[in-house]
Amino acid sequence: MHLFRRATSRSGRRRRGDPIVNRWALLAAPPIAFLVAFFLVPLIVVSLRSVTDVPRPTDDLLANYGRFFASAANLRVLGNTFWVAALSTVVCLALGYPYAYLMNIVRPRVAGLLLIAVLLPFWSSLLVRTYAWQVILRDTGIINTFLLDGRVIEEPIPLIRTTLGVMLGMSQILLPFMVLPIYAVMRRIDPEYSRAAANLGAPPFAAFRRVFLPLSLPGVLAGSLLVFVLALGFYITPALLGSPKDTMISQFIASAVQQRLDWGIGSTMAVILMGLTLAVLFIASRLIRLRDVFGSLEES
């Protein structure tokens, strides 16, 4: 999204207070109405529900929150959720940064191909891809069958139902959200800077570390935030590829809503997850200027 905004604002015609801009802003009314009706309203309903839909005998508004924090399993799974999200972010960054760098230095045609390759995961459903990982990773799956038949191993190696399995599945899905923002920022870095650094005697790695890397950091932060926040809500992938130790809070929410019909505690978990996510964004906004990350060109 931000890419597109950058693309239009790069043309340099956006000036605040310009009446033409305001009239164009009306175009945003339908999406805003949509967001209000289908996102904000449910959000408010869910938030209200977490305090009103409490177990019968009590009228304590915070009863659900008390129930949530009283359970060790809830806290453990909440911790897991943030751990798995952080781990996926690190994995995506480790894979995504070099990839974006590569896209940035190759010829445009090759860069286009690389772009298509990274966008490919968007073209098939998350569920299908996760089941595909199951077929590949499980004990009777492609990798283990191949290795067993080749007498490379005696026993199937544990790939599925491990954190490794979750990371494979999640990073494949999330990688584009890391690569695209980084690539967008890298493209705006003037190659002359690196050349100037080299001219002034910096070895290639020093030029990269002291010139290119700092300039690409806004992309790194944008990608990391996107991936982290998206990863927090993952549900199907850890359920199908992970072990119980990789259980994430969304699985608990689903179980509360679908199995126990306890929508009060389900809403409470959702609100807690949302609150903690906002807290992460808030802390991030203290450490870095989010504006630089998500809309750096608005000011320029």
Binding site: S71, A73, R76, V77, P244, T247, S255, Q259, R260
Partner: peptide
Amino acid sequence: NAQLIEDAYQEWKTR
């Protein structure tokens, strides 16, 4: 006792 059973289950499973 659905709540009790579920809590015991999740406690065991995620332990």
